[in-house]
Amino acid sequence: MPQLTQLGLVYQSQWFWLLLVLGAIYFFVGRGIVPKVEATVDLRDAQIAADLAAAERLREEADATEEGWRAKINAAHAEAHELAHAAKDRSLRETEKKVAAADKKLAAEAEKAAAALDDARKDALAEIEAMATQATREIVAKLTGAAVDDAAARAAVGGALERA
């Protein structure tokens, strides 16, 4: 086992070079490079944490903005609905008014027409009476030779017309 047989010859150089190398690693790497690496990692962690916090804050801001926008949109929708409803209502009422006016006008015209019809019927009846009176007088004269005066004939015709 060379580790034992050589021990007397090599232990000094082994210790010397080992302590030299370990010291170099300790001071140059362990105390020199490692803290730098750790600092970089810490910096990155801090940056990531800050970025996450900023992202969270921005998200909340965006949420608030969206909420506001949504409220505004809802209000606008409600207003539009109200306006549309009012307009519909107004137009409905106007239409009703117009229809009512037109109805009234039509009713008046119909009444007038009915009156005119009535007049025309009366005229026609009077004419028929006159013609019937004339015809009655002529018929009586032809059949009996008696002359019937106008008033008697009219009374007879009137009676007949009344009965008809």
Binding site: W17, K36, T40
Partner: peptide, 30 residues
């Protein structure tokens, strides 16, 4: 082999190689 601390040996050489490897590796991360 001489019984002196400054005797350079294959063991010392490989210690220095180990040191060099560690330094090169760590410097790559800085």
């Amino acid at each position: 082999l001489a019984a002196t601390p400054f005797q350079f040996t294959n063991s010392a050489l490989w210690m220095l190689i180990v040191f060099a490897v560690i330094v090169v590796f760590m410097l790559g991360g800085t």
